[in-house]
Each structure stands twice: as C-alpha cells, then as structure tokens.
Simulated assay, not measured.
Amino acid sequence: MTPLSLGPLGQIARSVRDIDAAMAWYRDVLGLPLLYSFEGMAFFDLGGTRLYLQQDPAAGAESILYFKVDDIDTVHAALTQRGVAFTQGPRCIHRHSDGTEEWLAFFEDLEGRPLALIAQKRS
C-alpha cells in the first residue's frame, strides 16, 4: 500500500445561527481577518488555516476552537476590554519536565459555544 501523507489542517467549519452577527463578532471582537463572505458564509484567516462559518438556524454545541497566542495574559485582558466574558481565566494546566508551562483560558462565542486561548510559557 502506498503511504498516505495528509497535510496540515486547512479549514475548520462552524455553524452559526446568525451569520451577520457572527461575522461582526469574529472580525471586530476577536480581530480575525475576514478573507471573504458569501450568502450565509464567512471565511476568516487563522494564521493559514481558514475558519468557515456557515449559517444554520439549528446550530448547536460544537468542538472547542483553541486560538494559539504568544501572551495569554495580554490577549485575555484585551478581549475582556472588548466585552468578552471568560468562563475560566488564564491558568496553567501542565508543566513539562523542561519547565515549559501549558496555559488555557476559556470563553464563549455569541451563541454560547466554547472557545479557548492556548499558550506556552517558558520559565
């Protein structure tokens, strides 16, 4: 059998109930660059991976999107100033043997679905 090699993740899809409100929130509150939008759809750049939002009136809970950041405390403060309510502020969840720490902070989008910040801190 020929070996199969998949590339990096190219796109993540998320359903939203109101595309206009979601597009404004992801663009204006989270600061994600809008690539383009069409009827009921919006595409954002997540550092080379596209976030695809599609309007679906029955949208419900979905998997967590983890946004990688360099300075979790600064981004947490900036998003809080923009009105984002965090369900759990920045906290260390693991320390590697080399002293590097894994940090997470959780919040929700306009429709109550989970999002998170993820960062590594080196001692």
Rank of each mutant, 00 (worst) to 15 (best):
D73G: 04
A22H: 08
T74S: 15
I72K: 00
L4K: 13
T87N: 11
H96L: 08
D18I: 02
A77M: 04
A22W: 03
T2S: 15
R122A: 03
G99F: 12
V16H: 06
G83K: 08
L6G: 14
D70T: 06
S5I: 15
L79Q: 14
I72F: 01
P90A: 13
C92M: 14
F67P: 01
G83Q: 07
A78Q: 15
D56T: 09
L79I: 13
V75C: 01
Q55C: 04
K68F: 02
K68V: 01
T100L: 09
D109K: 01
D98E: 05
F67H: 15
Y36F: 15
H96I: 01
F67D: 05
D28Q: 08
G31A: 02
I19K: 07
W25E: 04
D20E: 12
R27K: 11
Y26D: 10
A119Y: 01
A85M: 07
L115F: 03
F106H: 03
R82G: 08
F38V: 11
A24P: 00
L35C: 03
A61T: 08
Q88L: 10
A24E: 08
A116K: 09
D56R: 10
G40Q: 10
R17W: 07
P114E: 06
L51R: 10
G10I: 14
R113N: 14
Q54K: 12
E108Q: 10
L115V: 01
G112K: 05
D73R: 10
A59P: 08
S123N: 08
A78D: 13
F106S: 00
R14M: 11
E39L: 05
H94S: 13
L32S: 03
P57I: 05
I118P: 00
Q54G: 05
G112F: 02
F107H: 02
D45C: 07
L46M: 11
V75R: 13
S123R: 09
L34S: 05
L32C: 05
Y52R: 08
T87L: 03
